[in-house]
Amino acid sequence: MYDQEKIKKMKNHELAMEAYYYSINNKLIGGISEKNAVKCFEQIIAMLNSDERLNLPFITVNGKCCVATKKRLIKCSKNMFGYKFKEWNWSQITNVFYKTTLTAGTLILNTVDGEVKISINRGGTEFAGEKLRKLKREAK
């Protein structure tokens, strides 16, 4: 039989696969392989509290995976030394904007520490921006 840790990893892997395909289906995909994206999403999922769920998983154009929950926004990037995380609680984000150009889209977060720009696929910019705004409103 499987031990509890193995079962948890299987569930995390399944959730990570769903997050990856959600990002593809909603045109929120960037320059990263399926294998690396799933591993990144698995790392983020392992960080989540038991009451958090993935409200918006997406991948930036430069291959970083992001997940928005009702509590926070988490960005994961992989380098040769492992995974690096950056996160913002909704209370740290004052405004969410988005804009598109002919070739790309940008999510713009005004945070207490300054402006954060996240480049994503042009086709999913409006969808992601509106979803982030909704999560921000609900977090108040």
Rank of each mutant, 00 (worst) to 15 (best):
M1D: 01
M1A: 06
I7Q: 01
H13T: 04
E14I: 10
E18L: 09
E18Q: 11
A19F: 09
Y21A: 08
I24T: 06
N25D: 12
N26H: 15
N26A: 08
L28S: 06
L28Y: 05
I29A: 05
G30M: 03
G31F: 12
E34Y: 07
N36E: 07
F41S: 01
F41W: 07
Q43S: 12
I44L: 13
I44F: 13
I44T: 05
I45Q: 02
L48N: 01
E52V: 11
E52R: 11
R53Q: 08
L54H: 02
N55P: 01
I59D: 06
T60A: 12
V61Y: 01
N62D: 14
K64M: 14
C66A: 14
T69R: 05
T69W: 05
K70P: 00
R72Q: 12
L73F: 13
L73Y: 04
L73M: 12
K78D: 04
N79I: 06
F81N: 03
K84I: 12
N89G: 02
W90T: 04
W90I: 06
S91N: 04
I93G: 00
N95K: 15
V96Q: 02
F97Y: 13
T100Y: 06
T101Y: 02
T103W: 09
T106D: 05
T106R: 12
N110D: 13
N110M: 15
V112C: 08
V112F: 07
D113S: 10
G114L: 15
E115W: 02
V116T: 09
S119K: 15
I120R: 08
I120K: 07
R122W: 02
G123E: 13
G124S: 07
G124N: 08
E126C: 08
F127Q: 11
G129C: 09
E130P: 01
E130A: 07
E130G: 03
K131C: 13
R133I: 13
K134H: 10
L135P: 03
K136I: 05
K136S: 10
